[in-house]
Design a protein around this nucleic acid. Structure first.
Length: 216
DNA sequence: ATCTGAATAT
DNA sequence: TATATTCAGA
């Protein structure tokens, strides 16, 4: 019931402009099993029940000093507070930073989501790495990281639009092209227009690997 | 100096 | 293979 009519093209314009706001459509953290019900059934949940959308915004980097790349599964965060600041793992973050080398950055879905939102709010015009990095406010994230990802992002958008001859049965494209809209005004309040996150991956249970970057 | 595109590396 | 990092050009 998604693809119904494909005759009117101008209808898409309205669709783009009438997109819901982020806060209006962020119930991604919907719990399949309510705590009360779980308690009633004595179901043992992983532990985390309510997690904020922008709480654990931190990407893990794989430290590959030697040639040993064997990592264990590190899972289990305990305390969580209203941390709006995003931090990056692998380095100190602020201050001097004496870090190490440059590990491979892992663009976690949440991090990528922030990236997409930043780009969407900046607009096609001001979607420059510098602005994105500053808007994201991610400690540890450098422009190179964003630039690289931005390149991929643009390519993905181009691909999605270029392949429009009949149909696209190859890539369902989990993301919705945000480029093309957003005039990027300076003083005007950016309100309408948001990147719709159509995740068509219900996942069996607890799957955090829903967003698999832009695959071909 | 920053941004974009392509090549390379893992 | 895919993704991230790095190089090189505008």
């Amino acid at each position: 019931m998604v693809n119904a009519g494909r005759g009117a093209g101008s209808r898409v314009l309205e669709w783009e402009t009438g997109l819901p706001t982020a806060g209006e459509m962020t119930p991604i953290s919907h719990q399949l099993v309510p705590p009360a019900l779980a308690a009633a059934f004595r179901i043992d949940l992983p532990s985390s029940s309510v997690d904020s959308p922008t709480s654990h915004l931190s990407f893990r980097v794989d430290d590959e000093d030697d040639e040993d790349e064997e990592e264990g599964e590190g899972e289990g965060e305990g305390g969580r507070a209203d941390n709006d600041d995003v931090t990056v793992a692998g380095g100190e973050g602020v201050g001097g930073g004496r870090g190490r080398k440059k590990a491979r950055m892992v663009w976690t879905p949440e991090l990528h989501h922030r990236f997409v939102e930043a780009v969407a709010h900046l607009g096609e015009k001001g979607a420059v790495p510098k602005a994105i990095v500053q808007l994201m406010n991610v400690d540890g994230l450098t422009r190179e990281n964003v630039a690289s990802h931005l390149q991929k992002y643009r390519l993905y958008l181009k691909r999605t639009r270029g392949t429009a001859t009949a149909a696209t049965p190859r890539s369902p494209a989990p993301y919705v092209p945000c480029f093309g809209a957003k005039p990027a005004p300076d003083t005007a309040a950016n309100r309408s227009g948001h990147c719709a996150f159509v995740s068509s991956s219900p996942a069996t249970s607890s799957d955090a690997t829903t967003t698999k970057q832009f695959s071909s």
